[in-house]
Design a protein around this nucleic acid. Structure first.
Length: 335
DNA sequence: AGTCAAATCCGCCATC
DNA sequence: CAGATGGCGGATTTGA
């Protein structure tokens, strides 16, 4: 077997568990696929190593422990890819991206010697602190994107993509996007068919269209500070087929239309109609992916007045028709 | 694919 | 006074 590509993932106390294990799982699964390949397994997969300030146990954010294989100082030698995961600490004004000097130093030291550098989630803040994102496009968890842009004016932050490749530096959106990033690396290293087989094995999609703001509508808007607005958004999600017009919603909160629009916009960052459309579209998308329901049924279930309306909404936001979408993104293992 | 009425939503201002 | 709220006109978007 030829050389395996060595992937080293940094770990530290309070690290987000899935930021570490997500990419690790993808690289490991890809290695199995590669090893089982029809060419007799001559191609090499990956070895994944965890590195920390010193070898030994690490407590992740949720309390589950990981064990670092080596210390940062022992990661010299032929390393292919380093991955810096993220963490949030509770600050006075809410969660803040954690920046750990030892990790920043390590990334800065390793970067010139490796082929690829990646961050997951808020790990981008540490790559930025190491100067590795200067002049580059990058993304991070939606929650910290504004902060990243403010703290590092030289970084071209785009909060929307699932992942961004800027030369040898890859960054990605929150948490589970680390798996998408790793899968994209697998595709770059071993081709689309290995990536597809890996994705199928892990029961995930090779890549989602568009950006993270399409993923979860509630997450793409600011969290409302008014309880009644949050309750309204939950009610909307549970009653997609109901009358969700502006007058109807305003009345639910006992506000005039004018004021309702104003409050909604100020609290959530979008307008009511746009929000409703986005939530309906997300529901429709999931239904198309996960069921065999006719497009008419999907439209009716998700509160679109007609199939045409659903089509329009799809075109507008996803640049695809519902049937196209279903053909491309239907899970290969469902049904 | 184009039409047109309806819905949306925001600036501006009055009111509470 | 400041801040929250509501009404109106109309440009723009949306849906049947």
């Amino acid at each position: 077997m030829a050389f395996a590509r060595r992937v080293v993932i940094a770990v530290f106390d309070d690290v987000e568990l899935l930021d570490v294990t997500g990419p690790a799982e993808v690289f490991t699964a890809a290695s199995r696929i590669v090893a089982a390949g029809r060419d007799g397994g001559h191609r090499a997969g990956y070895t994944v190593t965890l590195a920390a300030r010193r070898a030994g146990p690490i407590r992740t954010a949720g309390g589950v422990r990981l064990v670092a294989d080596v210390a940062f100082s022992e990661t010299a030698g032929p390393v292919d890819t380093i991955v810096v995961p993220g963490a949030l600490e509770v600050g006075s004004t809410g969660p803040e991206p954690l920046v750990i000097p030892e990790v920043v130093d390590w990334a800065a030291r390793m970067a010139p010697t490796v082929r690829r550098v990646a961050s997951v989630c808020a790990g981008a803040h540490m790559l930025a602190a190491a100067g590795l994102l200067d002049g580059r496009k990058a993304t991070t968890h939606w929650y910290t994107a504004a902060r990243l842009a403010a703290d590092f004016p030289n970084v071209h932050v785009d909060p929307d993509p699932i992942f961004v490749r800027s030369g040898p530096v890859w960054t990605c959106a929150g948490v589970s996007a680390g798996m998408d990033l790793a899968l994209a690396m697998v595709a770059a290293d071993h081709g689309d068919s290995v990536a597809l087989a890996t994705a199928r094995w892990l029961v995930m999609y090779v890549k989602r269209p568009g950006g993270q703001s399409q993923f979860s509508v509630p997450l793409s808007t600011r969290t409302p500070s008014r309880d009644d607005l949050g309750a309204l958004q939950r009610w909307i999600a549970d009653n997609l087929a109901a009358d969700l017009s502006v007058p109807a919603l305003a009345q639910r909160l006992h506000l005039s239309e004018r004021h309702f629009i104003r409050v909604f916009r100020q609290q959530s960052g979008t307008t009511p109609a746009a929000y409703v459309d986005a939530v309906r579209l997300e529901a429709a998308r999931r239904m198309l992916e996960e069921t065999d329901s006719a497009v008419e049924t999907v439209a009716a279930n998700c509160g679109f007045g007609s199939v045409e309306t659903l089509y329009r909404s799809f075109r507008r936001r996803l640049a695809a028709t519902p049937t196209d979408y279903r053909r491309r993104f239907r899970s290969p293992v469902a049904g």
